[in-house]
Design a protein around this nucleic acid. Sequence first.
DNA 1: AAGTGGTCTAGACCACAGC
DNA 2: CTGTGGTCTAGACCACTTC
Lengths: 244, 244
Amino acid sequence: MSTGLASDTRLPLYQRLRDDLARNIEDRTWKPGEAIPSELDLARAYGVALGTMRKALDLLESERLVERIHGKGTFVRRANFNASLFRFFRFQGPMGDRHVPESRILGRKVLPANARVASELRLEEGEGVIHLSRLRLLEGAPALAEEIYLPLAKFSPLAGLPLSHFGNLWYPLYEEVCGQIVASAEETLTAELVEAAEAKLLGIATGAPVVVIERLAFDVARNPLEWRRSKGPADQFKYHVEIR
Amino acid sequence: MSTGLASDTRLPLYQRLRDDLARNIEDRTWKPGEAIPSELDLARAYGVALGTMRKALDLLESERLVERIHGKGTFVRRANFNASLFRFFRFQGPMGDRHVPESRILGRKVLPANARVASELRLEEGEGVIHLSRLRLLEGAPALAEEIYLPLAKFSPLAGLPLSHFGNLWYPLYEEVCGQIVASAEETLTAELVEAAEAKLLGIATGAPVVVIERLAFDVARNPLEWRRSKGPADQFKYHVEIR
DNA sequence: AAGTGGTCTAGACCACAGC
DNA sequence: CTGTGGTCTAGACCACTTC
């Protein structure tokens, strides 16, 4: 852990502190789940007042990079996908911990990236990608149809791994088998009409409306790792916001 | 403006300060757009340290109840609907200031509230409501079809007002003509297939997918004022979030 | 120059977790 | 009991706006 504040000296001190602390998280000097030094230690190490260090940590907390637990310490947060749009599909609870839907893999192919996939994953068109399609079910009922694309260069072990080794949650698998850690993601939502094949999979009428969620997942350095496109019945989806 | 901190003495001081300041906004002692007293004045009035008062104001700012302008003062924010889901319809910019779509009123009726409308507006079934339907257009092209319901008891002047007096933005009209001020809202998003009549209005094929946004708007005391249901072509809609 | 919010300091005391 | 984060104070100085 360095204590040299490189960045623009014009910025407020607490901002520069935040950047420096964030760097320790991004380069995994401080690892997810671990405690970082106490506020007092950090303040002393950087030679700043406690209040200033607290303000820097307030920023990191509001960005959800760290979590503070009264009496215990300050911890690096694990990426948490409870904020995913998927949670607005009524048939499932907060995704990622409980109520993980059952997963049925329908196919796996290695193929050259088409223009869209290449652009999302920042590959050259024609580079190898692993394409997986799966159906997710809740209590036996089809819920989501997903198409998943992974760059072959980073995920080659998955091309040959027996399908039975894929569980319901794939991000831990990416980490164990390929050493690739999903740290953040972007999701986009639209709606479409479902085509015959997918309608059959989902057990709905052809031409019924589906909500489409596209997710691009990144590693800590913000390199794209996975692109997925998921469809679920629109009548099972409800997104809610407050405006003030 | 009172300076007595009534609420639970167990809560942190800055929380109780926040509540007390918020009350001055809610009961319009401090009106939208106006400046509230300076931080130093407030701290002295309540007999607290400046830092504590600043922390209370930080809360109000994060809740978007006030806006702080360096060197000028702290101002009560006007309700601002730039956060609305409508802004994810690509055909329009941030709604509420620029790029307000043109508004064409298709009908106005006074009728008894059905079960759904009554429940949303917290009325008895059968109570009078004003129902308006309008089409919003951008550069002459149909963009959104809206059904709007207002409780007759609060909005009776609108039942007879010439339709030409309705402009493109209705919330200022509600305030001028009926003294009803929209302070916040809740929006819900789903997708549906569009029916023949609305498809024709929107200039899309019958059975095309539409994104449906329902909005329940409230006054400062959180009484429901207006319920509206808006539909727009799904292929014109794209919602984006970041997960970390 | 006067008044506003923004930054930073130094230190006291409180509340919670864990040994 | 010690160490952690949480609250609160009192005051200095800076940066921006307005007159």
